[in-house]
């Protein structure tokens, strides 16, 4: 906790899986929300199929699964504002920033590599 004078570390959560097909995306989001309680420097990266986690228009009514996509919009209230999305992954999937339900920074592969390299802890999902 920063109030107690603790060390603030840079944590990055790397998301590479589409939602619903596996539980990785939801698990990652839950860990991110919990991590917010510890006042660390948290960022999220979305690459490969992970970009599908952020697409607009998700509706799970027919699946009897929770549509957790609105929760990404709550991250700002948790002071988690660094969301990086891989440009190449968007382009491969015919997506653009307008297709995403939150404000993100679209970054190149080289920029993403730099961001990863500067982390103290990288957690992959």
């Amino acid at each position: 906790m920063s109030d107690a004078g603790g060390v603030v570390k840079k944590f990055m959560f790397v998301n590479r899986k589409a939602p619903y097909g596996t539980v990785y995306a939801l698990e990652s989001l839950e860990v991110v929300l919990i991590s917010a309680a510890f006042d660390q420097d948290v960022s999220l990266a979305f690459l490969d199929d992970g970009v599908y986690e952020l697409t607009k228009g998700q509706s799970t009514k027919g699946l009897e699964m929770k549509n957790f996509s609105p929760t990404y919009r709550a991250l700002e209230g948790y002071d988690i504002e660094k969301l990086y999305v891989a440009r190449e992954s968007l382009e491969e999937r015919g997506l653009s920033e307008d297709d995403l339900l939150v404000d993100v920074q679209v970054v190149s592969c080289a920029e993403m590599a730099d961001l990863m390299a500067e982390q103290d802890v990288v957690l992959s999902f």
Partner: peptide, 15 residues
């Protein structure tokens, strides 16, 4: 209804 989660205390207080 908006976010599909119950907010943490800190987040609730701020909101």
């Amino acid at each position: 209804n908006d976010y599909q989660i119950a907010p943490a205390v800190r987040v609730l207080t701020k909101a």
